[in-house]
Structure formats: C-alpha cells, structure tokens
Nucleic acid binder design. Sequence first.
DNA 1: CGGAGTGTTCGATGAAAACCATACACTCCC
DNA 2: GGGAGTGTATGGTTTTCATCGAACACTCCG
Lengths: 107, 107
Amino acid sequence: MAAPRHRAAPDHTHPDDVAVETALAALADPVRLTLVRELASSGEWSRSCGSFDVPVGKAALSHHFAVLRAAGLVEQRDEGPRRVNRLRREEFDARFPGLLALVLREG
Amino acid sequence: MAAPRHRAAPDHTHPDDVAVETALAALADPVRLTLVRELASSGEWSRSCGSFDVPVGKAALSHHFAVLRAAGLVEQRDEGPRRVNRLRREEFDARFPGLLALVLREG
DNA sequence: CGGAGTGTTCGATGAAAACCATACACTCCC
DNA sequence: GGGAGTGTATGGTTTTCATCGAACACTCCG
C-alpha cells in the first residue's frame, strides 16, 4: 500500500496533454494572469494560494488554481496546512514555446 | 466630401491597441481558431467570410469575424458584394511575437 | 482536545458569450 | 426593376463561466 494520504492530492495535467485552446483560455482571464505573473516573479514553492493579491474570495481563487493546474501552468504541493505553488516554466514552454514569455513580458 | 460609401466599412483595431487578454480570448475559441488557420493557409484577400467550413450560422460567423477584427487578427475589405479577409500576420506578430506561430503550428 | 489558519466543495446567482432565426442592406446581373 | 448572393443587425434563447456564501476537511499549535 501507499503511504496514507491525509488530504487529497490535487490532480495535475502535464502541459503536453493540454490543448492550445485550454492554455489560451486559462491565460485569458485577468485574475489568473495576475496569479501567473506574480508566481513568475517569486521563488518556486514560495507562495501559498492565499498569498496572492487578487480581488476574489477563497472559493473563486481555489477554482482559478484548478483551471491553472488543468492547463499545465501550475503545480501544487501540500506543505503543512497550506498549499504551495510553482509555475511550470520549462514544461509549459516546451509545449507552448514563447507563450509564457509573451504574457510575462507585459504587466 | 469623401466618395459616397454605400456600405459601412468595418472598424478595425490595430494589434498595437489590443490587450493580451483580448488576443488570447479571441484565439481561445475553436471556431475562430479554425478561421485563423484556414485564413493562414490561403492567399491574402482570397477568402470571403462565407467561404469557411465552420459549423455555425451566418449571424454567429459575422460575430466571430467582428471579434477577430477587434483583436487585430483580421483585416477586411469590401469587394463587390462580398467581404474578403486577410490575416494580419506581420502586424500581429510584431505585437505578440510567436503567438500566431504557436496556434498555427498545430491543427 | 479545541481553536485558528488554510483551502476545497457545494449550491445558487449574475454576467458574459455563443448561437439561431428573422429581418434588413448592399452588390451584382439578368 | 427585380431576384440571387452575401453579409450585418436585432432580439431572444441557451450555455458557459466567474463569483459568492456557507459548510466541510485538514494541519498546526496552545
């Protein structure tokens, strides 16, 4: 058996399994764009979900992170009581070359 | 006075005046993606609006072209009874380098 | 144990977007 | 002039998406 898991691990999607439409739609939202940008200018695994300055409640925020995971943009890991994030720079850029750079270049 | 214009010219938006979110949202739709791709593999000004193989009615199609114009992706010109299209490759690529190539590389 | 902190899930709501059918406008050609 | 072809505008329906409030699950710490 596997080690007992006390909390459901978030299901990730690898960028390779993501359709272009999905990636574009994920990045087309202003809130998610902020998350990605702030995440890009922070160290990996340094930001918990609640540490972002976006004008939405917890529920909506949780949903946005689910969308980002499904688009292969963000990886999450449980660290104690909080869930920390990492931008999947390399993997995502390998699948969609230049796209991340494009949205990071402005803002 | 200017020469009499019998039909309203479509209002275009230059890619330089387009926000990233707008460009991404425009390309995130499957129908519009098809239009852009088919347009990319055709000569400039060679395709009229009705010449595309998409599963939507005339009204919806007209709307999609309006979105593409607003995103700086397509330029239109009236040619007799029909409205012909051109993909704004260079201008759009100057504003969003690599984005067009990205969506054209697949499909 | 019990409370504080963090994040997800559920149900409902409101706004935005896609779509259709119809009606209209314009051009071409007989 | 009148009909066929092409595209737009309008009005209304349906779907999708972002959002919230409240309830729940889990971790940490006193």
